[in-house]
């Protein structure tokens, strides 16, 4: 009986993951070149953001968190978290356009809270 219930739970789990897939790949700006389709892009904001997130879109540049150099321009619309500003690490979900600009889905920006992930912050 217990084995049956456990099997049932496992079946639900496997069914879900096989239908919905294993999630979205999370990549850094330098890895983006080889990716097509929807990805979560994680990087650090550099330079000055321009534009209007609630109008034509906010434009900013992301670079790798640990080895700056490779830069990707991001076009973003929707809510901008408080923590957003140059120097902060964040994640946006979207796809790369043919011209290399990363167009994010509206409202997907998540900033990494520096206080809670302090250990990572100080060591990098």
């Amino acid at each position: 009986m217990i084995a049956l219930s456990v099997a049932g739970v496992l079946a639900i789990f496997l069914l879900y993951t096989s239908l919905a897939g294993g999630g979205t790949p999370s990549v850094s700006p330098s890895e983006l070149a080889t990716k097509t389709g929807e990805v979560a892009l994680a990087g650090r904001v550099v330079g000055t953001p321009t534009g209007d997130a609630h109008g034509a879109g906010l434009r900013f540049v992301l670079t790798d968190i640990h080895k700056p150099g490779h830069r990707v321009t991001v076009l973003y619309k929707g809510s901008v978290p408080d923590m957003f500003r140059p120097g902060r690490d964040l994640v946006v979900t979207g796809t790369k356009r043919a011209d290399g600009v990363f167009v994010s889905k509206p409202g997907t920006m998540i900033t990494k809270c520096p206080s809670k992930y302090q250990a990572a912050d100080t060591s990098s």
């Binding site: 968190i65 640990h66 690490d89 990494k112 809670k116 992930y117 302090q118 250990a119 990572a120 912050d121 060591s123 990098s124």
Partner: peptide, 19 residues
């Protein structure tokens, strides 16, 4: 999870002192 930085990435975890 909250203290080792493993959430951000495995790379930052291996660099953290207590991870």
């Amino acid at each position: 999870l909250t203290r080792s930085g493993v959430v951000t990435s495995i790379h930052s975890f291996t660099k953290s002192s207590i991870g």
